[in-house]
């Protein structure tokens, strides 16, 4: 049985696009799949340059590709993952998909007419919109999951785990490029008392509001995390000690001056801040320990203030303890 009759109806009904071009990249044939979607008539585009019909197609790149197919007599490909589409065509999910045009996979094949020996290039175009949509959804979900994994559930600042990872990164960066790096540790003053007097709901609200307030005082590049309970920490990249002390003082002033409304009452709170600066021999742990010691000293000095770490600090703390 001859199957010569098959190619006609197949090209008519094929659920993929077929475009046949000659060596001048002029249109020889386009199947109905493409004609309908592009709203063109085969008769009116035959013999025309492909780029004069599909004016939005990436001409420089695509003609180079098509010429590679013709001169090497090897197939070429285009994937929606690298280039969402070659030709602006509508897709069949106008409602359920946000993107406007059909995502496409395209095979470009070298063909030779058996009788004349003339060369052609055939573009086979497949609709990859579904894959494109699923991939986007997957990426969105992954991004959300990643966010969730990095943030503190109550306050929305970085959680301790992720914050510490970031500190390691910043310490390495500061060491390699010899950039300044500072660290703030702070603690809400008399937070236990607040919880006892007004309840945990009030305590949570204060944590949320203070985090929001301090977040608004920081730069995009500062890394603000909740270290535990009412203790927070801020990495200040590219910031020398004097700059860090300024930030710390501003935080101290603003928190003390900002009342937090809770059930028709205004709750007042304050923070104590410890500041440390990275120097080349320090590890991330050293830096945390220094800021924590300074914070301890700030509490001991009477709270609502900033203390900067200095190498003798640990000795003076020991003295206080032994006294």
């Amino acid at each position: 049985m001859s199957i010569d009759w098959l190619s006609g109806p197949l090209l008519q009904q094929l659920n993929s696009g077929v475009i046949l071009l000659n060596t001048q990249l002029q249109i020889v044939y386009i199947n109905p799949y493409i004609c309908r979607r592009a709203d063109i008539q085969l008769e009116s585009v035959q013999g025309k340059d492909i780029f004069s019909v599909f004016t939005d197609a990436p001409k420089a790149w695509l003609s180079r590709k098509l010429n590679s197919v013709l001169s090497l007599q090897s197939p070429a490909f285009s994937s929606w993952e690298q280039r969402q589409y070659l030709f602006k065509l509508p897709h069949l999910r106008p409602v359920s998909s946000a993107n406007e045009y059909m995502a496409q996979n395209c095979n470009m094949l070298p063909l030779t007419e058996p009788v004349t020996g003339e060369h052609y290039v055939c573009l086979l175009i497949e609709d990859a919109t579904d894959a494109y949509v699923y991939q986007n959804q997957l990426q969105q979900s992954n991004l959300q999951l990643q966010q969730v994994n990095r943030l503190d559930g109550l306050t929305g600042v970085l959680n301790r785990n992720y914050w510490q990872q970031q500190l390691e990164v910043e310490v390495q960066r500061a060491a390699r490029y010899q950039h300044p790096l500072s660290l703030l540790f702070f603690d809400l003053d008399k937070f236990k008392r607040l919880n006892d007097d007004y309840g945990h709901q009030a305590g949570d609200l204060v944590l949320i509001e203070v985090a929001k307030l301090i977040g608004s005082l920081l730069r995009e590049t500062d890394l603000f995390g909740r270290y535990g309970g009412e203790e927070f920490a801020i990495i200040l990249p590219d910031t020398p000690l004097d700059g860090a002390i300024e930030v710390a003082k501003r935080i101290c002033r603003r928190v003390a001056a900002t009342p937090i409304a809770y059930k028709q009452q205004n709750l007042m709170t304050s923070v104590s801040v410890g500041v440390s600066q990275f120097s080349s021999a320090d590890s991330a742990d050293d830096l945390i320990q220094q800021a924590d010691l300074a914070l301890y000293q700030a509490k001991r000095n009477g709270r609502n203030q900033v203390v900067t770490y200095y190498p003798g600090l640990i000795d003076s703390l020991k003295k206080v303890k032994t006294n």
């Binding site: 990436p58 420089a60 790149w61 180079r64 590709k65 590679s68 090497l72 007599q73 090897s74 197939p75 070429a76 490909f77 994937s79 993952e81 690298q82 280039r83």
Partner: peptide
């Protein structure tokens, strides 16, 4: 490619298919 519109990923797949299919053909 002299335009900037081609991503690195696309250049890699383009050169790969040229080098590979030419040899395999």
């Amino acid at each position: 490619y002299d335009d900037d519109a081609t991503s690195e990923a696309e250049m890699l797949t383009d050169i790969s298919s040229i080098l590979t299919t030419t040899f395999l053909n």
